[in-house]
């Protein structure tokens, strides 16, 4: 910059000044030529100094990364699905399976005559998977009729689906203790009790209940054995 200031202040000799003029003119013409070519490169050949990033263009290296990620994910998925389910997960799977199977297929028992309107409301709520509504209505029904086994049973299931395991256990135990001629209902209540114990982590009680089911070859004995093997 010193030489420029000397040049501008006329401190250079005539020859040096002339040489410097030549330098600055050359630099300027070079510069404008480059600018002109840059413009032509951009407009005619689409080449710019800063290339536009083409997100769609994936290099071989990127493809390799994508393939590696895909492989890892695929292996993780295969590993996850081949991994044996825990007792708790297995119990939850059976409960969900039951939930989908039992929709619109409620065994109403023979208590309905006592309060047909309320029972109808409770069953409709249960069938519609409105377990909150079902729980409230069945609670009202069992309060009215403490020996109504069907009402207790569905109350217990509603509590189970609402993951209120302690209440579900208590209600399903009640079903087992109630005098009833409906053997199937008792067996079903015992199965769900076994699930409730498993899901709430009460493994010893779960084992005990599941063993009962297996020994008596009750409803869902095979499934009980499977959960038991994982407990």
């Amino acid at each position: 910059m010193k030489k420029i200031s000397d040049y501008l202040d006329n401190k250079l000799s005539p020859d040096a000044a002339e040489e410097f003029t030549k330098r600055i003119v050359n630099a300027q013409v070079d510069q404008s030529k480059k600018a002109d070519w840059q413009q032509k490169l951009a407009s005619q050949y689409h080449i710019t100094r800063t290339p536009k990033k083409n997100n769609l263009r994936i290099t071989l290296f990127q493809w390799r990364n994508v393939a590696a990620i895909f492989l890892v994910v695929a292996m993780a998925v295969v590993f996850y699905f081949n991994q044996p389910l825990s007792a708790e997960s297995q119990a939850m799977a059976y409960l969900m399976e039951q939930k989908s199977e039992s929709k619109g297929d409620v065994n109403r028992g023979n208590e309905e005559a006592a309060a047909p309107k309320l029972y109808g409301q409770a069953y409709r709520a249960y069938e519609a998977a409105d377990y909150e509504g079902a729980r409230t209505t069945f609670l009202a029904l069992v309060a009215e009729n403490p020996t109504a086994s069907s009402a207790h049973y569905y109350l217990g299931l509603s509590q189970l689906y609402l993951k209120d395991y302690s209440q579900a256990i208590s209600t399903l135990q009640k079903v087992k203790s109630l005098p009833t001629t409906d053997q199937a209902l008792q067996e079903q209540a015992n199965w769900f009790l076994g699930l409730a114990y498993t899901l709430s982590g009460q493994n010893e009680l779960a084992r005990q209940t599941l063993k009962e089911i297996i020994a008596a070859e009750d409803w869902r004995a095979e499934e009980a054995a499977e959960i038991l093997s994982k407990l």
Binding site: W37, K40, L41, Q44, Y45, I47
Partner: peptide
Amino acid sequence: LRHSKDCI
């Protein structure tokens, strides 16, 4: 100018 792309 046409050759610039190859050179780059």
